[in-house]
Amino acid sequence: MSVVPARVRTRRPTGSIVLAVYAVGVLVYLFLPIITIVAFSFNDPTSKFNLEWKGFTLDNWADPFAKGQLLDAMLYSLWIALWASVVATIIGGFVALALSRYRFRGGAFVNLFLVLPLTTPEVVLGASLLNFFVFADTPFLERGFRTILISHILFCVSFVSMTVKARVRGFDWTLEDAAMDLGAPPLRVFYKVTFPLIIPGILAAALLSFALSIDDYIITTMVSPVGGEPTFPLYIAGAFQREISPQINVLATMVLLVSVTLMAAGPVIGLLRRPKAATAP
């Protein structure tokens, strides 16, 4: 009787060690390009292409904005991502609220309609939008800032709705009734009950939209004017043919640092705020 459990116990540690080593290996694999990007921000390339290690220098960090176009592209991307995430979060957030808060006819259809853009390959979304803008043939929808923004909002809306919906799933909306029964005016109900409960989902959705927008290449390249003002990814794609400067790595490293700081700050702020905010279910 006791033979089997004994065997189990002796086998377990080796299995665990193998699993741990494998998992660490995969994490290292995930970080290989990141290590490369950060390391090459200190490279001193002899050619225009910062793809082979030549020697250590701090020059790139001393002058991170040496490439004016690179900075412009970054700012353009930030500007688009800001607008795309604000608009997508507002209209997508309302869709999510409507779906989780109310019972109404057509809810299943709305859910399906929301998923469709997510299950469409990006190249097809890009193709349809490009054809649409060409077909519309009006100055307002001429390829440029507006068409990029429209497309980015489109692919963010579904992500926002899904994220917010997942966060507020199971939330007891009758809490609002309770607040109203206790004499709270509607605005106060929203501010004191609804808002604290939905804000984590809203923030997560906004950050996700921002990240998706700033990094999009496939759709953006299809709805941008040829030779027009490039977003950051479009600039990088063009640079791959002309000149890959170490400043690209410097900016990429900066973005990484900012994102990691934000991510680390999130839980810290959450910890500080916890005593005050209503605790979600």
């Binding site: 209209i91 808060r101 019972r103 109404f104 349809s128 429209i150 497309s151 909002i153 489109l154 809306v157």
Partner: peptide, 27 residues
């Protein structure tokens, strides 16, 4: 926990659905 919606859910859905209609379905 959900409430019965009359016009409210449709009003909240309108902008998002309009966007999807105009820039996903039509394209």
């Amino acid at each position: 926990n959900q409430r019965k919606g009359t016009w409210q859910p449709y009003a909240m859905l309108a902008p998002g659905m309009l966007w999807l209609l105009l820039f996903f379905l039509v394209p």
